[in-house]
């Protein structure tokens, strides 16, 4: 939707339009934010880039410039591990992102209806968001305990058993389930806000035209929820690419659950590589995730504009 020349003029901000605003005062107002961005964002990021060219390990006095050595290390010593962690991250993202949206939209549709106890269900679905990761991990470790957990008891009644989080074939799936449980409530609220912004008139008009419930959902709800979908997908993608807390708290990266973000955390904590090498890996991952997010942004923005 292109803006007309008049619209552009109207929207363009100018201090001349607001003579009462002192430009210096306005600039001064932005200083705290600018400083925090520089101190907490730009400086550490720049330092990471500098570090990646050194063998820095906590002491700048003894750090040497190593050129591109750390960058080439990625393709030699570490490549097998790194690609397997990337593959695990991708699998986790696939297990999580789409089911999370389906679950959140379904829950939003449910609590958008008028029924007794609606507020209760809204609170219930949102509740896991107020629990800390540690509590969530603890609860689910108990739920999936191979001896006393309710799922183990259920399987035992069918003569089956499982190590659950200790089974490399299903462990990642189970962590995805935990993520879905703890995250869908938040996404639900975004979808709910989107649903409540859709005018009833569209549905009434469609009903008069004979559209059934499914058609109304597909041709009215889904297209008009696209903005919410964009936001939720954005958050889900960035969240899954950076997920390390549940892996740390539940399996410590074992049983085929080591995501790339956890791997970065792990090597940093264990000190098994110098900070220069870790900085290089972080930069590689940054380039990868930024590419994914920019591609996503480009694609979905285009769709939104088309709409």
């Amino acid at each position: 939707m292109a803006l007309s020349g008049e619209d552009k003029k109207r929207r363009k901000f100018s201090f001349r339009t607001y003579p009462s605003v002192n430009p210096w005062l306005a600039f001064l107002g932005t200083v705290p934010v600018l400083v925090s961005i520089i101190v907490f964002g730009v400086l550490p990021a720049s330092l990471t880039i500098v570090m990646s060219f050194t063998d820095y390990d906590g002491n700048w006095a003894t750090a040497d410039f190593v050129g591109l050595k750390n960058y080439f290390n990625f393709f030699t010593v570490l490549k097998t591990d790194v690609f397997s962690y990337l593959w695990t991250t991708l699998k986790y993202a696939l297990f999580t992102i789409l089911p999370l949206q389906i679950l959140a939209v379904s829950a939003a549709l449910l609590v958008n209806k008028n029924f007794f106890g609606r507020s209760f269900f809204r609170s219930l679905f949102f509740m896991p968001n107020i629990l800390g990761s540690t509590v969530i991990a603890l609860v689910w470790k108990m739920m999936f305990d191979p001896i006393s957990g309710p799922f183990a008891q259920m399987l035992a009644s069918f003569g089956k058993n499982s190590a659950f989080f200790g089974d490399p074939d299903i462990s990642l799936w189970l962590i995805s389930i935990v993520t879905l449980w703890s995250g869908f409530g938040f996404h639900m609220t975004i979808y709910l806000a989107g649903l409540q912004g859709i005018s009833r008139e569209y549905y009434e008009a469609a009903e008069i035209d004979g559209a059934n419930g499914w058609n109304r959902f597909v041709y009215i709800t889904v297209p008009l929820l696209r903005q919410s979908v964009t936001i939720c997908l954005w958050m889900a993608i960035s969240g899954t690419l950076g997920m390390s807390d549940m892996v740390l708290l539940i399996t410590s990266g074992n049983y085929n659950t080591k995501t790339f973000a956890f791997f970065l955390y792990d090597i940093t904590i264990k000190g098994s590589m110098n900070a220069g090498q870790i900085a290089t890996l972080n930069l590689y991952y940054f380039v990868l995730t930024t590419t994914i997010m920019l591609t996503y942004n480009h694609f979905f923005r285009k769709k939104e504009v088309e709409l």
């Binding site: 999936f144 305990d145 191979p146 001896i147 190590a163 200790g166």
Partner: peptide, 16 residues
């Protein structure tokens, strides 16, 4: 080992 040993928390082992 007991079935599902890889899924059991270490902190529970001595008690069990």
């Amino acid at each position: 080992f007991e079935t599902g040993a890889t899924g059991m928390q270490y902190s529970l082992v001595s008690g069990r």
